[in-house]
Design a protein around this nucleic acid. Structure first.
Lengths: 237, 237
DNA sequence: TTGGAAAAGATTGCATACGATTTCTGCCGA
DNA sequence: TCGGCAGAAATCGTATGCAATCTTTTCCAA
């Protein structure tokens, strides 16, 4: 039993797909790093934990594998993804391409309700930064991602929104793996600046700020290969 | 029996995932419009056609639903997607954001082998345009998409490559639904120009050409709602 | 004829069963 | 002690069965 350090809250009695609910909980667990990269997620174990059959557990794992959060090997099972530095770079390259455009789109569509949502979001983000300890750090990473997801939802393009969901989730994994813990609070300031630009309807400024913001996030990573890459790959670790 | 106008070729005896093979064939059929938008894809039917159990058929349909090519409704089944004009606009908005960047990345990485691949690709594309008839038109749409996919593979970012696979497939659906059949041959010329710019290593020109190219593709669509939108949506057609 | 309710049929959601493949374990010989 | 081989255990891939849900048909009354 590898996952079961943490009991997952029971699935709410929605008539919605149970597989989807399981996927969401697993995704949160992965993004929060309660499930470490490389952890095996066996169908049976997941099924038992969530009290469903392997069929449903399997469907949830398949979804996560499409999102790149889980890697599946035939006849071997599913494992929490362990993105390589190269993969990490590609994640951020993708974000550099997409997010400035999202910022522009969002700048033209912000309502006052959106602004309010951003403000509560950023307040919460600030709280987590003030706190110390690994739990707060996890919540901080998650909250920081939520800012970007909120922006994507305001932009009003559901396709890009889904892309961003994937990219943000993978970024969280990458940050957890390669982040230098120090500088993350400056990201919060940048979020505030971006919101300012959005509120002012200054699309190009919001876009430029976003681009810098992504650069800063990536610059905070240590993407050098740590031990010998051959060994690392051989161990898949 | 709705699908069975066309027998699918038997799945090759690969040890690879059968669900994936089925997904690929169904995707081709959807993109080629052998399967019309709105067509029901029942698990049992798909399973029978490909000689697998419903379990495997279901997995294939789930994959297609993630890609947006199939829409699934709980307890009702899976249907070939029928993108709305709004969805169509979002597909092209996404492409406008991503593909110019892909062109830039590709411009810096083109090898002579890549150039050769592009040339054979464009030759084939030209052949289909010369031909007449609905079959050639299908092949033309597909070949045109393949150009963009080839570009994405040269760009060397597997995440963006996957995004493009989805976007190109959905574009093919959209073009089949909303395309005015006339002007498509000009797209071929634009492909040729883009290749020229890529070959010359002129990234910014390739990027600009790509942006115009996407605009032209979208401009060739008739995205006005055809009959009363209420009726159309009620009939899901 | 039309409206509507009830039964029949079809299809999905999910659980379970079984063979195939992989991984683990214990034993033996070098 | 170490390598490796055979059997056991675990895990996956897939088929199938049953209940729940949706759709269609049938039938009856207005």
């Amino acid at each position: 039993m590898n996952i079961a350090d943490q009991t997952f809250p029971a699935i709410d009695g929605a008539n919605e797909d149970r597989a989807q609910a399981i996927r969401d909980q697993l995704r949160d667990a992965i993004v929060d790093r309660r499930l470490a990269p490389g952890t095996k997620l066996s169908e049976g174990e997941v099924g038992t934990l969530f009290d469903v059959s392997r069929t449903v557990a399997r469907a949830a794992l398949q979804m996560l594998s499409f999102e790149g959060l889980v890697r599946t090997e035939r006849n071997r099972g599913a494992f929490v993804a362990n993105p390589s530095p190269e993969e990490a770079r590609q994640v951020f390259a993708s974000r550099r391409l997409i997010e400035p455009g999202i910022a522009i789109a969002a700048a033209g569509r912000m309502t006052s309700a959106d602004v309010a949502a951003f403000k509560t979001q950023l307040e919460e983000e600030g709280r987590f930064i003030a706190e110390r300890g690994p739990t707060a750090r996890r919540s901080e990473i998650k909250a920081s991602g939520d800012f970007h997801l909120l922006l994507a939802s305001v932009a009003g393009n559901v396709i890009l929104q889904r892309f961003m969901e994937e990219l943000v989730a993978r970024s969280s994994l990458v940050i957890a793996l390669y982040g230098r813990s120090g500088i993350s609070s400056c990201g919060h300031n940048e979020h505030l600046q971006i919101l300012e630009a959005l509120e002012a309807g200054n699309a190009s400024r919001a876009s430029a700020l976003m681009l810098h913001h992504i650069d800063h996030i990536e610059a905070d990573l240590d993407l050098r290969v740590r031990s010998g890459p051959a060994l690392r790959q051989a161990l898949e670790f």
